[in-house]
């Protein structure tokens, strides 16, 4: 898994702690994101897609349902992983 794959996995797993399996159902609706294994949390962003946009869409999916608090939760979940990324590569929803 590359860094943004890990970011997606971390966000979903963190959401799962709050809303349960619904977190995976919502993630499954994001175009360009493949859920490979719910148990291990393995996900993959499809190679030819815009990786940053996929992350933004994932965050939006939760924000639409649960409001701004969901965005904060996503940022907290991703923070340790995006700390090492160049600013240009950080998805706008996590800035």
């Amino acid at each position: 898994m590359n860094t943004l794959d890990q970011v997606a996995s971390s966000i979903i797993k963190d959401q799962e702690k709050v809303i349960g399996p619904l977190a995976w159902d919502e993630a499954a609706q994001v175009t360009g994101l493949q859920i490979l294994d719910r148990k291990t949390g393995k996900v993959e962003i499809v190679a030819n897609s815009d990786h940053g946009k996929v992350i933004d869409d994932l965050v939006s999916q939760y924000v639409e349902l649960f409001g701004r608090a969901a965005r904060e939760a996503c940022r907290e979940a991703a923070a340790p992983l995006i700390a090492g990324l160049p600013a240009a590569e950080v998805p706008s929803s996590l800035k």
Binding site: V18, I19, L65, F66, G67, R68, A69, A70, A73
Partner: peptide, 10 residues
């Protein structure tokens, strides 16, 4: 309500 429940759940 959903947002409030989410925040409480968090």
């Amino acid at each position: 309500a959903s947002a409030a429940v989410y925040e409480k759940s968090r």
